[in-house]
C-alpha cells in the first residue's frame, strides 16, 4: 500500500474555528435570505403603485408616521392618500371616476384600478389570517 495520505492533525487548530465560523455564517445567511423577506412581507402592509405595467413606487404603510398625499401622474392625474390603515384615491381627473368610487382599501390583496389613467394601487403583505387570494367584483 502506497498511499500518499498524511495522517491527520488530531488536535483542534485555530483554522478549525474559521471553518466552524464559515458554517455558522452560512447558516445565518441562508436564514436571513430565506426568512428575511417573509418577515418583511408578513409584518408590513405595503402599497405598490404602478403606472402602465411599471411599478413607480412602493410605500411601507406600517411605518408611515403621518398620512401621505401622493400625486400619481399616469394618463390621468390621481391624488392618492396613504395612511397606516390603507390607501384611497381622493381625487382624479379621469372621466370615469371608478378609482374614486372604489373608496378606501385596507387589506393585502386589494387594489384600486384607474383604467383611463392606467394606474394601479395594490396592497401587499400583512399576513391576514383568512385573507383571500383574489377579490372578484
Amino acid at each position: 500500500m502506497t498511499t500518499k495520505c498524511s495522517p491527520p492533525e488530531l488536535r483542534p487548530k485555530k483554522l478549525d474555528i474559521l471553518v466552524a465560523a464559515v458554517v455558522l455564517v452560512l447558516a445565518v445567511v441562508v436564514a436571513v435570505g430565506f426568512y428575511g423577506p417573509k418577515l418583511g412581507q408578513s409584518d408590513h402592509l405595503t402599497a405598490v403603485i404602478s403606472v402602465g405595467e411599471e411599478v413607480i413606487e412602493r410605500v411601507d404603510l406600517a411605518t408611515l408616521k403621518e398620512d401621505k398625499l401622493l400625486t400619481v401622474e399616469g394618463e390621468c392625474t390621481l391624488n392618492v392618500l396613504l395612511s397606516n390603515s390603507g390607501a384611497e384615491v381622493i381625487l382624479s381627473d379621469c372621466p370615469t371616476q371608478d378609482c374614486v368610487h372604489t373608496g378606501h382599501i385596507s387589506r393585502a390583496g386589494q387594489s384600486i384600478v384607474c383604467l383611463p389613467g392606467q394606474v394601479v394601487i395594490h396592497l401587499e403583505g400583512a399576513s391576514d389570517e383568512g385573507a383571500p387570494d383574489i377579490v372578484v367584483g
Binding site: G86, T102, G103, H104, I105, S106, R107, G109, Q110, G130, A131, P132, D133, I134, V135, V136, G137
Partner: peptide, 16 residues
C-alpha cells in the same frame, strides 16, 4: 384551494 372573495358592493374594501 384558492380563496376567492366576492367584493362587498356597499363597503369598499369589504367582502360579501
Amino acid at each position: 384551494k384558492w380563496n376567492v372573495a366576492i367584493q362587498h358592493p356597499e363597503v369598499s374594501g369589504g367582502y360579501a
